[in-house]
Amino acid sequence: MGGEKAKNSSLREPFLNELSPVDSVAGLEELRVRYLGKKGLLTSELKSLGGLPPDERRAAGAVLNETKEFIEQALAQRKQELKDLELRRKLASESIDVTLPGSYVQPGRIHPLTQTLEEITDVFVSMGFSVEEGPEVELDYYNFEALNIPKEHPAREMQDTFYVSNDIVLRTHTSPVQIRVMQRKSPPLKFIAPGKVYRCDADISHTPMFHQIEGLMVGEDITFSHLKAVLESFLHRIFSPDVPVRFRPSYFPFTEPSAEVDIGCIFCKGTGCRTCKGSGWIEILGAGMVNPHVFEMVGYDPKKYSGFAFGMGIERIAMLKYSIDDIRLFYENDIRFLGQF
């Protein structure tokens, strides 16, 4: 009995020895045929069982079947291993340099002035202001006269004007949009008007074209303290919630009282530097209560309505926001500049 068992077990040993160097699915199949094929080693032993007495045959058969199962399992397991290995090899051979750049259309950038303009617009839109437009080539009437700046008014000197004809100018500010909208719509009103404006002025800190945003709010009980609050919350949104804001008296023909609005210098935090000319403050926008003369010009009753208007230069805010030190960079359109924003 013991001898029979040893004989059967001895098939496992050579099988395992033959299995270990096999490194392909094909080799594995060869091995299977060698042991389990019609003329395989194990098959022939099974066939030879017929010559044994029934008792021994049963015992030896059980051992052989066990061995057969063992071989089948070992082959299957090995086959899976080899398949995995082959896949890994195949994938490894397909490796690419993942550090090479990807294929895509590199997006361009939006001009920093546009980004600043849109950011400001969004703040006011979120406060319920709508957005209006007006012509860039404008009648003298809308640009000056309806804004309480008659011909020969010294305030015209504040704005060097490009003339197309005696009565037609390139708008020197976005304020004429105020008049055009008020002529078209009745109060209450709350809108901003972003756009390009022109002054015949070109030096290190001025360009003949630049951008402004104008704002107007008109209603029955609009006060100077509303003006202060709206502009203060705007400046806190654009710069930072803790930036100091101050209002000081100024002069614009179309508003009264008028104010110049400063923020605490964001570079030196108020101690004084080159940007703020040592004052610790940076002028950021002009504002005021709408002058009753302007309401009269558009047929609003100044006894009934009050309102505030404001205007700001976008270049200045963009320069502060991005620490740009030369206004002319905005208009050179050098891609090394444009690509940074």
Partner: peptide, 28 residues
Amino acid sequence: APLRSNFIKDARQNIRRSGYNEAINFSF
């Protein structure tokens, strides 16, 4: 709704995604 200003904004964004940097020149 600021239809027109949204339209202009969308147009700018779209052309930007086609690879164009936005330029701003004087109107002269």
